[in-house]
Computed example of a mutant assay.
Amino acid sequence: MADNVDDASDMIELHLAAELAKAKPNLPPLTGSCYYCDALTDERFCDADCRDDYERLQRSVQMRKRG
């Protein structure tokens, strides 16, 4: 039978898993080209500038959806 410490530990574990799932970014799948400029690459983005621009664009889309 579980005691209070076990129950609290289980609750903390569930809470932590939920928070980590929310924090995990939704990355697009690898396609062989940059998601922002379509340049050929083995990664999702050809450089940090394209990654930053893509993330900025995604944030602005989310902001428009929220109102």
Rank of each mutant, 00 (worst) to 15 (best):
D7S: 00
C46V: 03
H15E: 14
A18P: 06
N4A: 09
T31L: 10
I12V: 12
K65R: 14
D10R: 02
M1W: 12
D47N: 11
K65T: 08
Q58K: 15
D10H: 01
P29S: 10
L20V: 07
Y54G: 01
L20E: 13
L30R: 11
N4K: 01
C46M: 03
M63S: 07
G67T: 07
K24V: 08
D52H: 04
E55M: 07
Q58F: 03
D47T: 01
E43V: 02
S60H: 08
R64L: 11
C37I: 09
A17P: 01
T41H: 11
A2G: 02
Q58R: 15
P28K: 00
C46R: 04
N26C: 03
L57A: 13
L14A: 05
D7T: 01
F45E: 00
C50K: 00
P25M: 01
T31K: 03
V61R: 15
S9W: 01
A8D: 05
L16A: 10
Y54L: 06
H15Y: 06
A8K: 03
Y36P: 01
G32N: 06
S9G: 12
C50M: 08
Y54T: 00
S60T: 09
P29W: 14
L27C: 04
E13H: 05
R59K: 15
L40N: 07
K22F: 04
D3K: 10
L40D: 05
Y54V: 02
K24R: 15
L40W: 04
C34V: 00
E55Y: 05
A2C: 02
T41W: 07
L40I: 08
R59L: 13
S33Y: 11
D38T: 03
K22V: 00
S33T: 09
D47S: 05
D42A: 10
L30Y: 15
E13K: 04
R44A: 13
A8W: 01
I12A: 12
A18V: 02
D3L: 05
Q62Y: 07
M1D: 07
I12R: 07
R64P: 09
Q62G: 08
E55Q: 05
A18K: 13
C50P: 03
K24W: 03
D49I: 08
A21S: 12
A2D: 10
Q62C: 11
T31W: 03
V5Y: 02
E43F: 11
N26Y: 10
C37N: 06
D10W: 01
R56E: 04
D47F: 04
R56G: 07
D6Q: 03
D53K: 04
L20R: 14
D38C: 06
P29V: 12
H15A: 13
D10L: 08
M11Y: 00
D6M: 06
E19V: 00
Y36Q: 12
K22G: 00
D3T: 07
L30W: 13
K24M: 13
C34W: 09
D53E: 11
L30T: 11
L16T: 13
A18W: 14
G32P: 04
E19R: 09
Y36F: 06
M63C: 08
A23H: 10
L30V: 13
S33M: 06
L20C: 09
R59Q: 14
P25G: 06
R44D: 14
E19M: 11
M11V: 02
N26K: 14
A21W: 06
R56C: 07
L27H: 09
A23W: 04
R44T: 11
P29H: 10
